[in-house]
C-alpha cells in the first residue's frame, strides 16, 4: 500500500480518574491501553470485544470527543498532538464522523429530520439555506429516505429508517472516515441486512474508511477487512479478518468465536466454555488480564504481561502463542 493511512494510531492510551471518596486515593481506570492500527481508504477495521473492553473509548478518541492520555494519533495525515487544535478541529470534523448504536437516542427528538441533517452544515460550512437543502435532499435520497421526510420528527420513523437518518447525518460533511458504533445491533435481522447493505454500498461508492465497532462476530466477519479484538482495554489479537476468523490464535478470540451462536443446527460443534465473569476494569487481574478465565493459563500468565507480537498473519498478545 503506497497511499497514506487515514488513521494512524500508535499505542493509544486513555485513563480516567475516578474519585472514590474523601479519604481514599483516586482510582485510575485504564479504559484503553495500547491500541495501534493503520486504516486506509475503502477499508473496514472492526473492533470486537465485550462490554468494558474499551471499544467505545476508542470511538470517543477517534471522533475527538476526548483526548488520548498517551500515544500518537494522526487522522488524514494530521498529527493531533502537534497540530493547532482550534484550527484543525473544523477540518478534522469534516474528515471523521460517527454513527451511534441506538437510533432512538442519537437523534434529537425535538428536531425535524431536515434540521438534524443541516446542523453539521450550519456549523461547519458557509452554504446558504438552498444549498444546504439540496445537499440534505441529495443524501436523503441516497440513503433511501423520501423527500417529504424532511419535515418529520424522528419518532415517526422505524428503527431502520432512523439509522438511515443517522448515516445521512454522518455523511453530510463528506467525511473520509466514519466510526460506526454498533450500528446494527439495535435493529431487527431483516432491517439489519438492509442497513449493512447500505453501508457497504456507500463505502464502495465513496471510498470511505470504516471503524466498525461491534460485538456481533457474524456481522463483523461479513463486513470487516481487519479485525482488532480487545479484552479489558487491551488489544489481544489483530490482523486480517480472514486470518483471525479462520485461525484464531489468542484463547480469548477462540472462546469468543465459539461462544457466538451460529444459525446452523449442528450441535456437535466443540464449545470452549469460558467460566467466570468479566473482571472489573477498575481492578484488572495481574499479568495477562485474561488469565482468570483462560483454560491454558500457566503460573507465568499471572505475573508477566504479554505484549502484541506478530505471529504469521496476525499479532497476538499471549505468552503461550509461539
Amino acid at each position: 500500500m503506497n497511499q497514506q493511512a487515514l488513521i494512524q494510531a500508535r499505542d493509544l492510551h486513555k485513563y480516567y480518574t475516578i474519585k472514590s471518596g474523601l479519604f481514599q486515593p483516586n482510582q485510575s481506570l485504564q479504559a484503553l491501553s495500547g491500541a495501534s492500527f493503520d486504516l486506509y481508504a475503502g477499508q473496514t477495521l472492526a473492533v470486537v470485544g465485550e462490554s468494558g473492553c474499551g471499544k467505545s473509548t476508542l470511538a470517543r478518541l477517534l471522533t475527538l470527543i476526548e483526548q488520548p492520555t498517551a500515544g500518537q494519533l494522526s487522522l488524514d495525515g494530521i498529527d493531533l498532538a502537534t497540530a493547532n487544535k482550534k484550527r484543525v478541529a473544523k477540518q478534522l470534523r469534516q474528515t471523521i464522523q460517527m454513527v451511534f448504536q441506538d437510533p432512538f437516542g442519537s437523534l434529537n427528538p425535538r428536531q425535524k429530520v431536515g434540521d438534524i441533517l443541516q446542523e453539521p452544515l450550519i456549523i461547519n460550512t458557509d452554504l446558504n439555506a438552498n444549498q444546504r437543502r439540496d445537499r440534505v435532499l441529495e443524501l436523503m435520497q441516497r440513503v433511501g429516505l423520501l423527500d417529504e421526510h424532511i419535515h418529520r420528527y424522528p419518532h415517526m420513523f422505524s428503527g431502520g429508517q432512523r439509522q438511515r437518518i443517522a448515516i445521512a447525518r454522518a455523511l453530510i460533511l463528506k467525511p473520509k472516515i466514519v466510526v460506526l458504533d454498533e450500528p446494527v445491533s439495535a435493529l431487527d435481522v431483516s432491517i439489519q441486512a438492509q442497513v449493512l447493505n447500505l453501508l457497504i454500498e456507500l463505502q464502495q461508492e465513496l471510498g470511505l474508511a470504516y471503524v466498525f465497532i461491534s460485538h456481533d462476530l457474524s456481522v463483523v466477519r461479513h463486513i470487516a477487512d481487519q479485525v482488532l479484538v480487545m479484552y479489558l482495554g487491551k488489544p489481544v489479537e489483530q490482523g486480517l479478518s480472514e486470518a483471525v476468523f479462520n485461525n484464531p490464535q489468542h484463547p480469548y478470540t477462540q472462546a469468543l468465536l465459539s461462544a457466538t451462536p451460529q444459525a446452523n443446527t449442528d450441535r456437535k460443534r466443540k464449545r470452549i466454555r469460558l467460566t467466570g465473569e468479566l473482571p472489573s476494569p477498575l481492578n484488572p487481574p495481574s499479568g495477562c488480564s485474561f488469565h482468570p478465565r483462560c483454560q491454558n493459563a500457566t503460573a507465568q500468565c499471572k505475573t508477566s504481561t504479554p505484549v502484541m507480537e506478530q505471529h504469521g498473519d496476525v499479532s497476538v498478545a499471549c505468552l503461550l502463542v509461539k
Binding site: 465485550e50 462490554s51 460485538h215 462476530l217 472462546a255 469468543l256 461462544a259 457466538t260 451462536p261 464449545r271 466454555r273 469460558l274 467460566t275 465473569e277 468479566l278
Partner: peptide, 9 residues
C-alpha cells in the same frame, strides 16, 4: 455479552 450469553443459555 456473548460469552455470558453462552453460559446463561
Amino acid at each position: 455479552d456473548v460469552t455470558i450469553q453462552a453460559q446463561i443459555l
